[in-house]
Design a protein around this nucleic acid. Structure first.
Lengths: 396, 396
DNA sequence: TTGTACGCGTTATCAG
DNA sequence: CTGATAACGCGTACAA
């Protein structure tokens, strides 16, 4: 790409000349300096207007050491959730006078590094990283460069073993492991995954469901935390353990297939807590294909509340993430407009059509059973067994 | 926002000092100038690496008159379609060494102007505007500033009258009016809306459908062009006129309601061509709520192919826009990497589950009727009549 | 209240 | 092959 040499735009010098003042005075007048007489200010403003003068951000940045740029790193914007968060960030940034420099990692660590480098080069004033894969590195770079940064929903890969431990009944030391995963650093803005999943699960428990299943997302921190919320709620209700579906691949197609496999061994009424809305929609598809009806046979709840959740059939009951607030908070935090302290934001249950009271109309083996009797239901799969599609269904 | 004074990053001067060469030599070495001895180049590179030197983009831009920045303006990124296009643009831009400065208009002309101003201030090398409301202005500004720009899917508001003319049978001078709307300027990259809708409609015609309805989006250019494709195809098949649903409001909820109203007066089998995928999904909802089954009673086809289209129930038959290609093409065009000529890109039919052969099982009043007999079907609404929700259903 | 002059970090020109 | 030096456009101490 040979960047062709284009003619320079109007500069302050020209504005000054036209209004018959020095370049310094022009600068001050445009900046709203009070020590400038009204007449001159007007003349300068008029000249600037007439010449359609636009201050050169690069030059200004060079001089002031502030680019008024904020680097935003996301995996992609072609996804309902990230796209909405980016929109929120852009909105608040602009209100505060900042521009957004956007970079996407496409879920690749290599790309993240590149993005950070370019942010550094552009001398952005701050960085907001939404759900990077390798945030330690990212933060390493930017903190070394003394760049203020905020991470939204830090979603790092975790060990499969951890997922297994949460999915199984094992409790020893779990609290500690998870606590290490969950801290909200001073530069973190996070959706409370655990509480969100708990809210979703509780809704189903209160609707009389006894037979549950959780559908994991990728092997990431947020997935583990949501699974944990699922488990905690059911434990408190005396309904643990329950099966956990964990697709071998991180694709939506794999999740759908894994749910389909699971349904073959299950009987209504069933309650599905999905990792997120996309997963929930895929689960609903799987249910329909298997001839189950939603929500009478199976209730499905998602998490996130993407825009489309209200238009699917049936529309999706979900726990809404306060995306606009998350974005705004991140911007304010990173710009120092508010006390920089970790933020943990709660979700809100949105009841729609994909969940209903558990009815024992179907040939459910048990419906009002208590803990010991009702827990082994549904999946007859052996613990750790791999289904044909590679999904693991852990019952215990 | 008082942008706090942060310490400067490493500069070329320091790199030069550390490698024992002049600042000029350091610059050349890093730029890969061939007139630099290998040893010095290495020394400089090593020093830069060690100090984690990042060239200051602002300073460079000041000097070279090229910011390597490309301004991207979209209505929002929180929407499946735009988000995907932005992702495509970002991807290709980065490949070519450019960064993306993102701004959103949120469908407001005022915001668009602000965005263009900031682009000018940042001295972006090019502007890509995706579907702005007032592109004439936008292009006025940027062309006046000699900024190369490209518009993707220029989606400007049109007169209601034009929609009415297309929806009704009126043909006189229509071709001309539309032609004025459709030109692909040298700085346009556009999806062929008319051909796309035609493809969608043809699919339904070939499936044996005789009773159609088109669901409009907002009163915009793309909506009119798609409606035109619908009409042309049906005319060619001797099936015109057909009803056209045009919601009074541009919201998805309004579209859903308008379809619901329409269905009350219709009988299966029906073929629905929706303005876009979102509209199609809303239409499917309306059908389900009205007790129609999709696709056996009503076939629904969308346009765009957003990611979620494959996961809804039933999954959506649609005409896919080549979003990645559109984004890449726009970037290349605007950067002069390819002959700058208007581009009109075709869509591809993706058959999924929301459409099926028309079966006359239902109590359809007519199914194999020819033009004159079959055209007044379905909507008994009078031309121009406003239903309770304010949607207009034009039969002729 | 206004003007002068310097420097922010780079690249490019011109010598050597 | 390398070094000194002049811009690029702006903001701001310092002077007037």
């Amino acid at each position: 790409m040979p960047p062709q040499r284009r003619p320079a735009l109007v500069t302050l010098r020209e504005v000054a000349a036209r209004s018959g003042v020095s370049i310094a005075t022009a600068s001050r007048a445009l900046a709203g300096d009070t020590a400038i007489s009204e007449p001159t200010r007007l003349r300068v403003a008029e000249a600037a207007q007439h010449l359609s003068y636009r201050p050169n951000a690069g030059a200004r940045s060079l001089r002031t050491r502030s680019s008024m740029l904020i680097g935003v790193l996301v995996p992609t914007s072609g996804d309902g959730y990230y796209g909405e968060v980016v929109a929120a960030i852009e909105h608040r940034s602009r209100q505060l006078g900042y521009q957004v420099l956007l970079a996407m990692s496409h879920f690749e660590t290599e790309r993240e590094h590149e993005a950070l480098e370019t942010f550094l080069s552009q001398r952005v004033d701050a960085v907001i990283s939404v759900s990077p894969i390798g945030p330690e590195d990212a933060m390493g770079i930017s903190s070394a460069a003394m760049l203020t940064s905020v991470i939204i929903n830090w979603d790092v890969a975790v060990r499969q073993r951890l997922v297994d431990r949460v999915a199984s009944g094992a409790d020893r030391g779990l609290a500690t492991s998870v606590a290490q995963l969950a801290p909200v650093g001073p530069n973190h803005v996070r959706f409370d995954d655990t509480a969100g999943a708990a809210t979703a699960t509780r809704h189903l428990v209160q609707s009389g469901h006894r037979q549950f299943v959780f559908v994991c997302g990728a092997v990431t921190r947020s997935s583990v935390l949501r699974l944990l919320g699922f488990r905690q709620t059911l434990s408190a209700a005396g309904l643990w353990p329950q099966p956990v579906i964990q697709p071998a691949e991180a694709t939506l197609a794999a999740r759908q297939q894994a749910v389909a496999d699971f349904l073959r061994t299950a009987r209504p009424p069933l309650a599905v807590v999905a990792y997120d809305d996309l997963t929930a929609i895929a689960a609903i598809r799987a249910a329909h294909e298997a001839g189950w009806s939603v929500p009478s046979d199976v209730s499905v709840v998602g998490i996130d509340d993407i825009e489309l959740a209200q238009y699917t059939w049936p529309s999706l009951t979900t726990v809404a993430q306060p995306k606009a607030e998350i974005g705004a908070l991140a911007v304010e935090a990173v710009l120092g407009a508010r006390r920089r302290a970790g933020q943990l934001l709660e979700g809100t249950l949105i009841k729609r059509e994909s969940t209903a009271e558990a009815t024992s109309t179907a040939t459910s083996t048990k419906s009002t059973s208590t803990k010991s009797a009702g827990t082994k239901t549904g999946a007859s799969t052996k613990a750790g067994a791999r289904s044909t599609t590679g999904a693991r269904t852990r019952v215990r």
